[in-house]
């Protein structure tokens, strides 16, 4: 096994081009488990810890460019206003120690359906900045997850950053686990209201081979909110609308039975989470509307 220690981003890209089988390691919170448990022996490790810009973020007028290695604990502390969904998801990641090391780039690189960041990235409409010596491309999060632990990165590409639209409305993330902390999701759900566009977006974790959006549910809710004039009135959608939204979210999942939970339970729980997060975000939307100064 080789250990590559690029001192700069350019060196990292060059190394990845030269050794495409080298596995990037930043927080190490996925990869080191696989090495410690003898599940994986990469030809080379590509250490990204010395590349400081990966741990930085830039807040623009409409988006946040979030470095791939910004630790979850920093996201929780500093980006709660701009990226509320992701900040809530970050707070549910593993343990404080892991949140101090792990970042969104790792979740994306591993592309496990259980990664906590994915539902929030899907719901907010993130784009992934994938870079190689050949250049930079932006991958829409909707196109990023290809299969169980497979993503759209080319062998010579690294994730430089994730571009997330700054929240224009309330967002929520909730995850079901059988322990009250430090638990991998049985299933997870992210919901973002986008009042500027009068749409909603969702993300489902741990309930399909990849993280997925519940598009039919989004379309249904977007239409129902428009038809009922809810964006203007602030009136909460009727319980029947919430129930249908929940049903459609559950239907969007394609879960399996495993040691963490059954497929039927995952569907059931996703419905509950969809209904609750809709309630919370809509409540927040109404309050925001009434007292915009108190943000």
């Amino acid at each position: 096994m080789d250990f590559l220690r690029p001192a700069s981003w350019q060196e990292a890209l060059a190394a990845k081009a030269e050794y495409p089988t080298a596995v990037p390691i930043a927080g190490g919170t996925d990869l080191m488990v696989e090495i410690n448990f003898d599940h994986r022996r990469p030809d080379a490790l590509l250490d990204l810890n010395r590349i400081t810009e990966l741990r930085e973020w830039e807040t623009g007028r409409q988006t946040v460019r979030l470095g791939a290695s910004v630790p979850y604990s920093r996201i929780m502390e500093h980006l709660r206003a701009e990226l509320p969904g992701l900040a809530q998801a970050a707070h549910t990641v593993a343990s404080p120690q892991i949140r101090n090391r792990g970042g969104v780039g790792g979740n994306l690189g591993t592309a496990s359906p259980a990664g906590d960041a994915h539902p929030a990235l899907l719901a907010s409409g993130a784009r992934i900045e994938a870079v190689s010596v050949r250049g930079t491309r932006m991958i829409d999060v909707d196109d990023f997850y290809l299969g169980v632990k497979r993503n759209a990165l080319a062998p010579d590409e690294l994730i430089r950053a994730v571009h997330l639209p700054k929240a224009t409305g309330p967002q929520a993330f909730a995850k079901v686990g059988t322990r009250n902390a430090m638990v991998i999701a049985v299933c997870a759900f992210g919901l973002a209201l986008h009042p500027d566009r009068r749409t909603v977006r969702t993300g489902i974790g741990s309930a399909a081979p990849t993280p997925v959006r519940a598009r039919v549910a989004e379309d249904f809710l977007t239409a129902a909110l428009a038809d009922g004039g809810h964006w203007d009135s602030g009136r909460p959608p009727a319980p029947s609308v919430a129930a249908e939204f929940a049903r459609l979210v559950a239907g969007a999942a394609n879960p399996i039975d495993d040691v963490r939970g059954t497929a039927a339970y995952r569907r059931h729980a996703l419905g509950v989470l969809a209904r609750r997060t809709l309630g919370w975000t809509w409540q927040a939307y109404r309050e925001q509307d009434r007292s915009p100064a108190c943000a």
């Binding site: 927080g27 919170t29 488990v33």
Partner: peptide, 22 residues
Amino acid sequence: QGECGSCTVRLDDVPVCSCLVA
């Protein structure tokens, strides 16, 4: 595997699981 915290150390002043730091 980062699930117990018994290996916690401060790395550049931040608590981390030393089992997951290469």
